[in-house]
Nucleic acid binder design. Structure first.
Length: 289
DNA sequence: CGCCTTTGACCAGCGC
DNA sequence: GCGCTGGTCAAAGGCG
């Protein structure tokens, strides 16, 4: 990372239309843009965003084509006061080739601690993760910056809100959600950017341990049932019928923030709302400096 | 009745 | 050691 913070990343320089956004509360970085060439740029990040997505404010992406989710940004609070440039440098470290990053998962030494069972417990104990005296561990995290009027974006999974906190330096509270699947430990945080209230920052943590969407009342729902209408990336102008993420076979897949889906997600989402739009990938590619 | 959100309290980690 | 902040728990209430 040395030196990365004081000179522009070639990729960043090329992507002049990108707007660096720093999420101070979590110390995460995002690149947001309205330029359609982002798809090309995103591909370099390992994200496959459909080029034609019907407008910057209602964009979807095909997460199913994503490579295995890589760890992320979001260093701990300890870095809160680090200058943005320095943080950007840390992001470079947050790559597979730099497992030293705190957010790394599989090789996180903390997983060997007793608390590992708490944060990554066996299925039968999922849901009751935190006990007094047990240490928290960080699952791999990554975030999306989306432009949406609603905070909670449909992503194909069902979530249960378990907390809300006021965020320092932000007038908007942060909401904490947990996957309702008892075997799934995935969490996500949702908050609005204090810089741009129209921007929703969704941070996923962990990997879904189940294949499809959640389990709506009445039993498990298959993907086909959950997504009766399949919209291709190029035809997803309708906000009512989100693009169906193509889930890989077989499961489980890496944490996949299935783009806009409504089936097993929240009970409902107002038409035109709650869909992942204007998605911006976290910068987690090693820029190979 | 079951699931969900809300909300205050509690805990852990970190900086000073 | 203290204070701050993020993250989580769990009870209570609401809703379909």
């Amino acid at each position: 990372m040395s030196g990365e913070g004081d000179k522009p990343d070639p990729d960043f320089a090329a992507a002049s239309a990108w707007d660096l956004r720093h999420h101070p509360a979590d110390n995460s970085f995002f690149y947001a843009t309205d330029d359609y060439k982002e798809s090309t740029i995103l591909s370099e990040f390992g994200w496959n965003i459909p080029p034609d997505s019907g407008g910057a404010s209602n964009r979807h992406c095909d997460f199913a084509d994503f490579p295995p989710i890589e760890p992320v940004l979001a260093p701990s609070r300890a870095d809160d006061r680090v200058a943005p440039d320095a943080i950007a440098s840390r992001m470079v470290e947050a790559s597979p080739s730099n497992p030293s990053v705190s957010s790394s998962s599989s090789d996180d030494p903390q997983e060997k601690s007793p608390s590992a069972a708490a944060a990554n417990p066996p299925p039968e104990s999922a849901g009751k993760t935190k006990k007094k005296g047990q240490k928290r561990i960080r699952q791999p995290r990554f975030a999306f910056v989306t432009k949406s009027e609603v905070d909670h974006l449909e992503d194909g999974y069902r979530w249960r809100k378990y907390g809300q906190k006021a965020v320092k330096n932000s007038p908007f509270p942060r909401s904490y959600y947990r996957c309702t699947n008892s075997k799934c430990m995935v969490k996500k945080r949702i908050e609005r950017s204090f810089e741009d209230p129209s921007v929703v920052i969704t941070t996923y943590e962990g990997q879904h341990s189940h294949y499809s969407v959640g389990y709506p009342r009445g039993g498990m729902v298959t993907q086909e049932a959950a997504f009766p209408t399949y919209l291709t990336p190029s035809s997803n102008n309708s906000p009512h019928l989100p693009y169906h993420p193509r889930l890989p076979h077989p499961p489980p897949s890496p944490l996949q923030p299935a783009a806009g889906s409504s089936g097993g997600g929240e009970p409902r989402a107002p038409p035109g709302e709650g869909l992942l739009g204007d998605i911006v990938p976290p910068r987690m590619r090693n820029n190979g400096s």
